[in-house]
Amino acid sequence: MPRWRPLIGPCLNAVSTMGRKFWAIIGKDLRLEFRGKDIWVTMAAFVIMVALLFGLAINPYTTHLGPVFPGILWLSFLFAGMLAVGRGFEHEAENDALLGLMAAPGDRLSIFAAKLVMAFLFMFSVDLVLSPIVFAFMDQPLAGSLGLYVLVLALGSLGFVSVGTLFGAMAAQTRAAQVLIPVMLAPFAGPVVIFGVQATGAVLHVSSTSSGPWPWIYALIAYDVIFLALPLLLYDYVWEV
């Protein structure tokens, strides 16, 4: 019998326990969010308010927004994303529930992965639903590939929430989590803003770059891979911060 055969059973068992924990947390978080509904309303209102304020400050009907528009779009979405990553661990702060999750069988990676997926679902769905509204506010046509636009939104949101969830886990143990998350996240969100804005500009044909969206999309993919891998290495150390 090969020497690795006895390892298969425990490994499969560990993966199955992690999967069970992951899906249980996802199910519980979805139940809490659909019951509360407040975060959906808050995030939507937040994006609309930011877009509206930009509109009032710039007046899109008298100013040619063109190359600036992707920046406005991404800043609106990233502000909403900050709410999404902060929200992930908010439920667990109540009654010290995070400790209950940590004490349950299954690697803590499953807690982290569930929070990341939930934050991504939040941010991406808000991006998708509110895109037409922001376009309308800013009087911008959706010229270009809709598929590429959605891909850029997905990649940008994934990169943002992956680093955000790591900081969210670190800040969850502190009293000032809601303040700490944006402060810690802002410098790391810089590349997402740059790549996302440039890729969106190229997709919408409002950018001055002639190289097209793909170099920026590849940069977003690279950022996502790095910031999905980094938390996998660090997540075990963040729970006792």
Binding site: K28, L32, R35, N95, A97, L99, G100
Partner: peptide
């Protein structure tokens, strides 16, 4: 079986 200082329960559920 761990019974902590807090209840670990979700108040909305």
């Amino acid at each position: 079986g761990y019974l902590g200082h807090a209840s670990f329960l979700y108040r909305a559920l």
